[in-house]
Design a protein around this nucleic acid. Sequence first.
DNA 1: TTTACTGCAAACCGTTTGCAGTTCC
DNA 2: GGAACTGCAAACGGTTTGCAGTAAA
Lengths: 143, 143
Amino acid sequence: MAPDLLSRLRARNWRLSSQRRVVAEVFVGDHVHLTAEGVHQRARKSLPEISRATVYNTLNELVAMGELLELDVIDGPKRYDPNVGDEHDHLVCDSCHAIRDVPRSRKPSMIPEGTRAGYVVTGVEITYRGLCPECAERRSRNR
Amino acid sequence: MAPDLLSRLRARNWRLSSQRRVVAEVFVGDHVHLTAEGVHQRARKSLPEISRATVYNTLNELVAMGELLELDVIDGPKRYDPNVGDEHDHLVCDSCHAIRDVPRSRKPSMIPEGTRAGYVVTGVEITYRGLCPECAERRSRNR
DNA sequence: TTTACTGCAAACCGTTTGCAGTTCC
DNA sequence: GGAACTGCAAACGGTTTGCAGTAAA
């Protein structure tokens, strides 16, 4: 198993302030998809004085370092995904906007040569849309 | 071939003001991916007094009617895609942010039953990331 | 004539920034 | 000691909204 976020950051000689540590800790061992605001709230529990600006700065750095993924799969604020280890896709509930990671089962089919328009393709993102069990259930009841 | 946007709107008895017509006309026969601001600029060429608010209102209605697709594949302002007829994916240049539609070659692979977490899956979005020919060329030159 | 759209400006939300002060190494 | 980080508050960009006026049907 890959070392956790904090050890990876230490290994990179990342200047480790209490604020940064607290932000990183929000993500350890957790596969949630928090907004910056959500991260701020959780971070405040351990460090009440941490400012919103610092949370944003830190999140942006972690993204730039490749330690967090920025998700823009639902509108509203961006979400941050700590699951950078294995390639995965996202399953989004159109009703309550819950997001789940789903492992990428097989290689996604490449674009046919002819329609590639000369682009060099380096990655693929796949988002499945639908209804989570709760919302699907609620819908069928209210019909 | 499917009737164009304007005829479809007429067929729906959409109350047709000059502003709305002008916004709709921006999209006819064109497969570009404009921002609201871009739509406003083009609309102004035919109707200089049209306001930003009206452009936003109109775009939102067209999206709600299913006559435009809202794209959030690059950060910054949303893009609007008039190509609602055929299922397609998007090819995005990571450098200049150009977007191209690509026809969906074959059915995307479904999520394996086991990892579906009880979701009812109703759609899939696929975004290919890479470099457009110009940016790829420029990069290899400046190396 | 009535209903619904438009324009303006102000408000809004999420995010970034400038700067003075503080902390880490 | 010095570079790098933090907090504040103000600014930002994109979008929405309330309301008085106007235009489509």
